[in-house]
Write a protein that binds this DNA or RNA. Structure first.
Length: 260
DNA sequence: AACCCCTGCAACCGCTTCACG
DNA sequence: ACGTGAAGCGGTTGCAGGGGT
């Protein structure tokens, strides 16, 4: 009903972002913080709609993003959280530091869903597709069948039972997420234990910047994030962005939380 | 080598929710 | 309490790259 479009369609560019556009957006947000997204394109000199800028930032340019496929623990966590929360990707993403809702959604649709179906589990209900003919677990050896049973049968009370998720028995080879990730097994176990604590599932206790929150303070507690980000950016499109501002940010991060 | 098909991911669209006057 | 605008969210699409024939 008379709702304004998020941007005037004329002169607004669509499609993949160029390195130049990324630079502009990152530089703008790092120097000004996140003010109203609608104003960002104009202020940053971008011919994009604010929505597109927000999406690009939250899904790709955010400094705290992890890159690469989800590791085993993360994947298991997504499955279990999905059993509890359904397709509330942003809620799920909020529990996976460095992962975006879009990324998790994509991973779910392209990897996990198929995996569950092959295992005879309905990815929507997390119930067995065919109770008497559950296929042998030929895929996803990391997901112990018994644990999957727990996931879908006891999803409502699984909280706090992370110890039942026996990652330690998982073979080193893995189907689609095989490459090693940053978490070693010990980290995974710890992560899973914490993840299923009530505290973990309490939204109010989450300080990790979820999608849409203000990331301009991302480094205030962990300056090393900057250097990692900076390094990542050196690999971005094979060129150095020359973000000298990152090192400045390191010192000025306290000032950057303020909005204009 | 060329073509086709499949897969995965980035980005868009439109609806919902939230915040504010 | 209501209306309006902005942000957030989830579903969907389009395209690039890889693998198979």
């Amino acid at each position: 009903m008379g709702r304004q479009p998020c941007c005037d369609k004329l002169g607004v560019k669509k499609g993949p972002w160029t390195v130049e556009e990324d630079k502009k957006l990152v530089n703008f947000i790092l120097t000004h913080g996140q003010c109203c997204w609608r104003a960002v394109p104009k202020l940053a000199g971008l011919r994009r709609c604010g929505k597109s800028c927000r999406l690009r930032w939250t899904n790709y340019l955010r400094p705290d993003l992890k890159r690469g496929l989800l590791n085993e623990a993360e994947e298991q966590l997504v499955i279990d959280l999905h059993a509890r929360l359904g397709n509330r990707w942003s809620k799920i993403a909020a529990r996976l530091p460095g992962r975006t809702d879009n990324e998790i959604k994509n991973h779910w649709n392209t990897h996990i869903k198929k995996k569950l179906i092959k295992m005879g589990i309905d990815p929507i209900t997390h119930e067995p597709l065919n109770k008497e003919a559950t296929p042998p677990n030929t895929l996803c050896q990391s997901l112990d069948q018994r644990d999957m049973e727990v996931s879908h049968q006891e999803s409502t009370k699984i909280c706090g039972q992370a110890s039942s998720i026996d990652n330690s028995s998982a073979p080193t080879e893995n189907s689609s997420t095989g490459e090693s990730q940053s978490l070693d097994q010990g980290d995974n176990d710890l992560l899973m234990s914490y993840i299923w604590s009530e505290a973990y599932l309490d939204d109010s206790l989450w300080n990790f910047p979820a999608t849409g929150e203000d990331y301009t303070n991302f480094g205030s507690s962990s300056p090393e994030n900057y250097s990692e980000f900076s390094l990542n950016y050196k690999d971005f499109s094979g060129e150095d962005f020359g973000f000298g501002c990152f090192s400045d940010m390191d010192m000025n991060s306290q000032d950057m939380g303020g909005k204009h």
